[in-house]
């Protein structure tokens, strides 16, 4: 279970998260929706451990473990995975090299030996095919020269290969057309399982047509203002975020 209590976080002295509370049991998918600037991406980065964000108060535990005390790599080993809104381009590092390094790092952290190259290639091929990713693309440097859709599918590919237990998806739909959203969402849905929790951050409701959440939270001004079922997302699509923009400002 993910438990976030009274989380306050700031960047460059500016407070972004202001008493954020959230509980996501395993097996559930929670959507976090909110207007631009509400702190959604900050939440994602704080969960993954990005250095520039300073947590000033509160706690985050995953499976009872204190995430805030861990380095980004340790969090990853503990099962945390952030699907980036803007995946980094890493020129000079072939995606296959990167994927193997990441998989081996996970295995090492769990006391397993390195994956053999044939096993690795087999797994990558299977998952890539499901996501309509070509092996040629994976021979190219990480995210370099990939289209917007390719970058997002590459994030889902990593998720499928690393099999995290806490998935945080930051605007996985942004910049994608409907077909691309469907492919990415199918990939995410395949990972839904009773021992996996997911936090899906999105500005628009449309992604939630494909990844149907158990709970929808509305976030503004650095905290959750309202929670409800999946129908809340549809309501927001109708009414917009105007009501939340003024509240608490």
């Amino acid at each position: 279970m993910l438990e976030i209590k009274d989380l306050h976080a700031e960047i460059d002295g500016k407070e972004i998260l202001r008493g954020f509370n959230l509980t996501v049991p395993k097996g559930e998918v929670h959507a976090i929706m909110g207007p631009n600037g509400s702190g959604k991406s900050t939440l994602a980065y704080v969960l993954a451990g990005k250095e520039e964000y300073e947590v000033t108060r509160g706690s985050v535990t995953w499976d009872g473990k204190d995430l805030l005390a861990m380095s980004p790599a340790e969090r990853s080993h503990a099962g945390v995975f952030l699907a980036f809104q803007y995946p980094m381009e890493i020129p000079g590092v072939a995606s296959l090299t990167f994927l193997r390094a990441a998989m081996n790092a996970q295995r090492k952290a769990h006391g397993e030996g390195e994956i053999s190259i044939p096993d690795f290639m087999r797994r990558v091929r299977t998952e890539a095919e499901r996501l309509s990713i070509s092996m040629d693309m994976l021979k190219r440097p990480v995210n370099t020269g990939y289209s917007g859709g390719e970058k997002k599918r590459h994030e889902v590919l990593q998720m499928a290969l690393l099999q995290p237990t806490l998935c945080v998806l930051d605007e996985t739909d942004s910049g994608l057309d409907i077909d691309a959203i469907r492919i990415a969402a199918d990939g995410v849905n395949r990972l839904r399982s009773p021992d996996r929790a997911m936090v899906v951050i999105t500005h628009y409701q449309r992604l939630l047509n494909y990844i149907v959440p158990d709970v929808v939270h509305v976030m503004a001004h650095g905290r959750i203002l309202h929670s409800g079922g999946k129908e809340l997302a549809l309501e927001l699509e109708e009414t917009g975020y105007a009501a939340y923009r003024t509240e608490g400002a």
């Binding site: 980004p72 790599a73 890493i90 790092a105």
Partner: peptide
Amino acid sequence: MMFYLLARGIPE
């Protein structure tokens, strides 16, 4: 770039 790699569990 470092953070992206670290977030995938690759040691520093």
